[in-house]
Nucleic acid binder design. Sequence first.
DNA 1: CTGCGCTGGTGTACGGCGTACGCCTTCGAC
DNA 2: GTCGAAGGCGTACGCCGTACACCAGCGCAG
Lengths: 232, 232
Amino acid sequence: MARPDASGPRARLNRPSVLAAAVALADEVGVEGLSMRRLAQELGVVPMALYKHVRNKDELLDGMVEFLIGEIGDVGETEAAEDWKGRARTRVLAAREVLMRHPWARRLFETRSTKTGAVLDYMNSFAGILLSGGLSAELTHHAMHAIGGRMWGFTQELFEDEPSTPPQGPEAAAMMQEMAQRFPHIAAIASMEHDDSVVGRGCDDQFEFEFALDLILDGIERRHLSGWRSTP
Amino acid sequence: MARPDASGPRARLNRPSVLAAAVALADEVGVEGLSMRRLAQELGVVPMALYKHVRNKDELLDGMVEFLIGEIGDVGETEAAEDWKGRARTRVLAAREVLMRHPWARRLFETRSTKTGAVLDYMNSFAGILLSGGLSAELTHHAMHAIGGRMWGFTQELFEDEPSTPPQGPEAAAMMQEMAQRFPHIAAIASMEHDDSVVGRGCDDQFEFEFALDLILDGIERRHLSGWRSTP
DNA sequence: CTGCGCTGGTGTACGGCGTACGCCTTCGAC
DNA sequence: GTCGAAGGCGTACGCCGTACACCAGCGCAG
């Protein structure tokens, strides 16, 4: 009775609630204003309490990315009876919608390099859209890279292999087998060297970059030559 | 004679030498390992000494960007007798070459948002390449934006106006006049609404994003339909 | 030659950060 | 009722950026 329920004295923390609070706080003060201490204070808790739910700040940031990917999923549901191009388009625009709601998130996506399960899931399903349209694994691979180059001269590396731990022993092979099952589309576009090796060598970064660059320049030239105008 | 010249006891600091040392240090320990204290130590000087040459760490970072843009200039000299597409291509690849030499720099370019003179110079000359090819100011504007979108759903904002200080009074007009003279190409593509206003309203972000997205998707589709293979 | 001001390096100090480590409370299972 | 684990607490450490006051040496006016 006297138990204050709605505005309770303190709700027990858990990982999702911590992540949600972190996202909310970042919405308020930006990602550079987000600190463990500040977040703890927002939750009415001492800083070290957070470490019971999150290994460290990096993992908190990764968790926030995960959280946002969840939001993308919520947005981009009805992408049924379109061709691959339309589906890819609406998917990207759904992602964009989420990113626009959380302006700080762009930085976060750019910064984080570790690929959590959620990130791989997203990439996998995106690759799936292209593959289901009949695009070859090769073209899909390069297309994935193409969506992200810039005038300054670099490409967002999607598959930054970091081969510090090259496939070693039979248990590694088993793990890759499992990966291939969980992320079949990624597996399909990751290997193009031989049909048997599921996860191939890293890709030729320079090639990817020039592929994307030429894609853009060709498209611009085509529009230029056909007298493109913004208001047709 | 006894004056130790080459390995002197202490060379006087100045802004360029501080920036160069910062770049060198970042090459060693990465940009996240770069701290004012560490940099000072590397220069054999007390941390606060740096603040005589750089207002704060943000300005140091901006200065490093400047420094790298200088390197791009050194690389991309011989871009004479090509068409606009070729010149844009070699320019971008020159930028890329520099970025590859300093892997940490990509993050830095993505993070920094303030446009120093060097940045504007670079953008201006890049726009100049496109304009000199006969591209309309409109198409050039969108093309600049297009070189930098990604699957996650955002575009690198080149002209993030942040209209906190909208053009006010006659002295602002004078400043814009000066801008237009120093960066004529940027002025040309920044305004497309009326021929008289030199610096127009901010641009439609959503339009830019979809322009770039369609550019890429169209290009991929074209390659797909014509049976593109990586080894022709 | 003297004194003075300016430029640039120094020393100290403060508040904020991430987080290691150990203690204490709470609560569900038995 | 007991116990063990899970979760929140307190303290402490070593980094960080940087404000502020001070001082060394040099160029120059007198």
